[in-house]
Amino acid sequence: MDRDRRGRGGRGRRGNRGGEDRDVRLSKSMSYVLRHGANQMGLHMGTDGFMFVEELLAHPQFSSYSLTDVERVVANNDKKRFKLCPHPEDGRLQIRASQGHTVQVQDLELKPVLAGSSDCPAEAVHGTYLRYWSSIQQQGLSRMKRTHIHLAPGLPEEDGVISGMRRDCEIAVYIDVPKALADGIQFFWSENGVLLTTGNAEGKLPPKYFSQALRLRPTRSILPLQ
């Protein structure tokens, strides 16, 4: 059997490190490298966020994985976190993260949202947790170390919503997108349907753009905005 089809080391999808699925470990490792840690790991990532798959797999951290593993993780990722495509000049396979970067990426193929356009949502949702609500309530949402604040077009269980917030989030903060656009805050659609914004000059979406906040669990209820 072709060694590449077996996966390096011949191991199945489930490893023995805490019982975590190998594909989950690979997805997490690729997310870290492609969003944050390429330079620290000695890997080259282009200004467009792409990295050659062969160079990724040559790194010791990925030595137990194969091209087949990478292709499977990319294809099966329900949030479409990665883009895999041939390099336009030499055809070598390259990969990048769709969003979530803390490093600057010049061209993520983001589509600007224009006020009044058909793809401008009336609201977008940011998922968060109870422990952060008091700070968010007072200071707004912050992109923190990332290049963008991530928003979803709706809650995860709604039709067509595949990414933008974690399914275990305890609070959904709804953003009035047209109001923020009118104040000059820019929004962009990523290729996998996440609404991204750099926020204001301080990298924030202030509370004045919140239209509502919804506690999702253990029971659904509306939270006061002030």
Rank of each mutant, 00 (worst) to 15 (best):
D69C: 08
V70S: 09
V73M: 05
A75V: 07
N77E: 08
D78G: 08
K79L: 03
K80F: 12
K80Q: 13
R81E: 05
K83T: 09
K83M: 06
L84I: 14
L84V: 12
L84R: 13
P86S: 12
P88D: 14
D90S: 14
D90F: 08
R92T: 12
L93N: 05
S98Y: 03
Q99V: 00
H101Y: 00
T102I: 11
Q106W: 08
D107L: 01
E109R: 07
E109G: 06
K111V: 10
K111C: 07
P112R: 04
A115Q: 13
G116I: 07
G116Y: 15
S117R: 09
S118Y: 14
D119R: 01
C120F: 03
V125T: 10
V125K: 13
H126F: 07
H126I: 13
G127T: 07
T128D: 14
Y129A: 04
L130M: 08
L130I: 05
L130Q: 11
S134M: 00
I136P: 00
I136M: 06
I136V: 05
G140A: 06
S142G: 08
R143G: 09
M144C: 06
K145L: 14
K145C: 08
R146T: 07
T147Y: 10
T147P: 03
H148A: 00
H148S: 01
I149C: 02
H150V: 04
A152F: 10
A152H: 07
G154W: 08
L155H: 15
P156Q: 01
E157W: 10
E157F: 04
E158S: 13
E158G: 09
D159H: 11
